[in-house]
């Protein structure tokens, strides 16, 4: 076994303390022949520090497209020639989406808007929407509405939003290559406010934006410093019309190495499969990731693209004998 895996086992598995940036980089360089062993170690760490349960979530776009920001991977930026048009979801459809999500056994429903940050119209929609969901559906509500002011943080807490997603997307050193209309530090600022408010922090990003593996290690270390409750891992699904539309997709084995490395960096976080896994990993790889550090999934469709049917993921979890986390366990 490679020496780094021995060290990781001694440190992370035994003490629950995550790897530092240099060690994460070593893990990301694990040769193919040692990949099964790496995944097994990441799985052992997940089982020891998180347990066998898997958190299931559904997400929906409340406001799609027309975003003024220029995140180069995003089909919802209004600045690119993407075919995605601006559209708002009405409240009855939002509640119905929450209902369908809950019917899969999911405990989390995340409401997302393509904005720099919320305006009054969006906050009003949120207030009405969260209230309607809470009156009709047994599910926890999370939100992802871009950068917030302190007043907006307070309002979301008051509405009963229990977790806030705001992705750093990539490491600090690579961020200016991906986004020019706002800074990594501005995102960090929102995350700090969310943390201090008592809401759970959900923060991850996208792999395959053109970052080096050194920068992947940097990103994992920066996330570990933030110590989020949940880390969603996306793999770039190159979108037509965006600046990254022709970027190659992450290779399956590199994606699995990254999953394991993120788990070894953050032994206790909820590490969630988010967008792009269908393309990068396929069915077999999806299974490998769940046995290599992942302990949460987004089921069903994404914001502008489709996922595999929720029933496929639920059948896989059953097959792997990984129980879906129940609502009572999260309240």
């Amino acid at each position: 076994m490679p020496e780094i895996l021995d060290r990781a086992r001694a440190q992370v598995l035994s003490t629950g303390r995550g790897l530092d940036e240099a060690a994460i980089l070593e893990v990301l360089k694990t040769p193919d022949e040692d990949l099964p062993e790496l995944l097994q170690l990441a799985h052992d760490v997940r089982m020891k520090w998180c347990g066998p349960e898997v958190e299931v979530e559904g997400i929906v776009s409340l406001k799609t497209g027309g975003c003024p920001e220029d995140c180069h991977f995003c089909s919802q930026s209004g600045l690119f020639a993407s075919p995605v048009r601006s559209v708002w979801l009405d409240i009855p459809s939002l509640v119905e989406a929450a209902r369908q999500t809950a019917a899969t056994g999911a405990t989390e429903f995340c409401i997302v808007a393509a904005v720099r940050g919320p305006d009054k119209r969006l906050m009003d929609q949120m207030r009405e929407g969260v209230k309607a969901i809470k009156a009709a559906v047994d599910i926890q509500v999370a939100a992802s509405l871009g950068m917030l002011t302190q007043e907006q943080v307070d309002e979301l807490v008051e509405m009963g939003v229990h977790r806030y997603n705001h992705n750093l997307e990539t490491c600090r050193s690579f961020f200016p290559n991906v986004v020019t209309t706002h800074s990594w530090e501005e995102r960090w600022g929102t995350l700090k406010m969310v943390r201090d408010s008592g809401m759970e922090v959900c923060c991850g990003g996208i792999l395959g934006l053109g970052e080096t593996i050194e920068q992947r290690a940097e990103f994992a270390a920066q996330l570990a410093e933030l110590d989020p409750h949940e880390v969603p891992m996306n793999f770039l699904n190159p979108r037509p019309g965006t600046p990254l539309g022709d970027q190659p997709v992450v290779e399956g084995k590199d994606a699995l190495r990254a999953i394991a490395a993120f788990r070894l960096a953050m032994p206790k976080t909820i590490l969630r499969y988010a967008g792009g896994r269908e393309i990068t990993l396929g069915d077999l790889g999806t299974r490998d990731g769940l046995l290599g550090g992942i302990n949460a999934v987004i089921v069903g469709n994404y914001l502008t693209t489709l996922g595999r049917p929720a029933t496929d993921d639920l059948a896989l979890l059953e097959d792997l004998k990984m129980p879906v986390k129940a609502l009572s366990a999260t309240l």
Binding site: S61, T64, R85, S93, A97, G300, N301, L303, L306, A310
Partner: peptide, 12 residues
């Protein structure tokens, strides 16, 4: 024409 498309967890 570009269509207005809404994706939800179980359809579009």
């Amino acid at each position: 024409r570009r269509m207005k498309v809404q994706v939800v967890p179980t359809g579009w």
